[in-house]
Structures are given as C-alpha cells and as structure tokens.
Design a protein around this nucleic acid. Structure first.
Lengths: 149, 149
DNA sequence: CGTGTAAGGAATTCTGACACG
DNA sequence: CGTGTAAGGAATTCTGACACG
C-alpha cells in the first residue's frame, strides 16, 4: 500500500510523459510554426536527441505554452507573455510541493466516502486535517485527533 | 486572475492530452504487444478514429496501465490485476474531486512563501485552512479567520 | 491465457525556404 | 518581430501472422 501511495505522486508528476510537436500544437491551440519559433528563441525547450527526429516536449512545457498563449490572447506581445509566464511559474511550483507533501493518504471510510489526509496542523500537532469527498463529489474539510502510527 | 485559477484545474486535468501506443509503452514499461492484447480484451480503451491509424490513449489510461502493471509485478494474473485496478479507481476519483474542489487559490505572500487556500472548515465556517510552502519546499498546515469576500 | 518478434506498408512528422508585415 | 503555407524526405508507428506455452 505504501508503494501505491508513492505511485500516486509519481502519477501526478508524470514528468516522464512526452508529447510530440503536433500533439503539443493540438492540445495548446498554438500552431506548430509558433512553437518552432518560440523554441528557436529559447522561450521553450524540448528534448531532441538527433537532428530531424521528433521533438519531445514534457507536460510541463505543455502547461507553459498554454499559459503563454493565455497572455498572448490578452493582447501582450510574445516577449511580455513569456516574461509573465516565468513570473507565474512560482505558483506552479508551490502547487506541486503542496501535492507531493500534503497528500498523505487517500482512503475510503466505512460509509464509502473518500478521505484525503493532509497531515497535522502546524500550530496544533495533536490534530490533523482531512478532506471528505462524498458520493456526490462534495468535499468538506475536517479536523480530527491524530491517530497513533 | 479568475481565468487563470480555472486554468490551474484544466492544467491539472489535462484530459485532452493524448499519447500514442509507443509512448504509452515507454512511460508505463508495458510492451506494446501487451497493450494491444489488453485493448483487444477490453481492459483498456483508446480512441482510434480509423483503422490502421494511430491509437490515442488518454493520460488516465496511462495511469491505469501503470497500476495494472504494478499488480502484475506483484504476481497477480492479468485478470485479477485489472480487477484490482478497477476497485482502486475510486481513490483516483476522490483525489480528482479533492483537487478541483479544494484548491481554492494559490498565492504568494509578502515573504515570498506560497499559500494554497483550501477553504473553510465544515465544522467551523469562521476559519479556513491553508498550506504554506516556504522557499525550501517545506509545507505546513494552518488555520486562519476567514476573510470577507 | 498472455506475450514476443520480424516485416512491410501506411500514416505522421519534421525541416528549410519563402511570404507577409 | 512573429506567424502561415506548400513540398518532400525521413523517421515512426501500426497491423496481422506466427511462435511459445
């Protein structure tokens, strides 16, 4: 069960999943000529083992491209859009740290509700926070006394 | 900013990202002949518009394959591994509900720490839970009095 | 049941060049 | 600066068949 817990994180990260240029274009709505240009300018990066072979973009890059496009659509120039994406990137990092540190367990209780354990309160280590997800997908937050390990 | 908040969820979901059979094989460590067989048996599904064209597997399917492989590696037969993955799927659903409902905002505070707002306590709606992520990536959980909207 | 391999055709993807502005 | 298009070659991917057990 521990190995599966660990897997949840790996599954979330999915760092190793790579997509090609045309797939990247498809899922971001950015044309491949744009992507090629952005890459030439060093705004985004891909892994390409040899010349004339497929580009491999990480999912991170896909998100990055989506966000750059978001700013472009707002009317910013490409340079500014790239700059704004870079500033924003810190938030993504925060999110990823949160997920890998705070999702301490996912279980089902006897009622069939899902429980997501988030760990102890920093100010009161005798209590931990968990989220309850009921059958309708409603989520609520709760405190409970910490169980002994 | 709201559009970007929404985007965080879409980014997380990444439903629309599809990968080919060989990429799926690569990232899961399951051979493509296995994948073909599993698909023929109806254990996994792909989108394939026409005959002899590329399969498109969702990231969900990639996770599914990884988990089936996990059980196979434990010594279960394929049928049992598939069955166990199905039972386990409820947990993934819980996780996704948690993310889309509970990540109510990601910000940086004046110290440069990241804050992930998780929403109000069910038992005490005057207080909300948030996680703090410091520069070292350490995360801690806190309560605070709810701010007015 | 469950997976591997070799072979060939089919579909996809990539690139550099050129255009426009 | 920033993006689109047409063209052709190059690399990738897919499939059905067969093997083994």
């Amino acid at each position: 069960m521990d190995a599966l817990g660990k897997q949840f994180r790996e599954i979330f990260k999915s760092d190793d999943i790579k997509i090609g240029m045309s797939e990247l274009a498809k899922v971001t709505g950015v044309s491949s000529s744009q992507i090629r240009y952005w890459e030439r300018k060093g705004y985004i990066h891909s892994q390409q083992d040899q010349q004339n072979k497929n580009h491999h973009f990480s999912l991170m890059t896909a998100y990055q491209v989506r966000i750059i496009k978001f700013y472009l659509d707002q009317g910013y120039t490409l340079q500014v859009a790239v700059q704004k994406e870079r500033e924003r990137r810190a938030l993504g990092k925060v999110f990823r740290h949160f997920i890998s540190d705070r999702i301490q367990g996912i279980e089902q209780d006897s009622d069939g509700d899902g429980l997501v354990r988030l760990g102890k309160l920093d100010d009161d280590p005798t209590r931990e926070v968990y989220a309850r997800v009921d059958k309708n997908g409603q989520t609520t937050l709760h405190l409970r006394v910490v169980q002994e390990d």
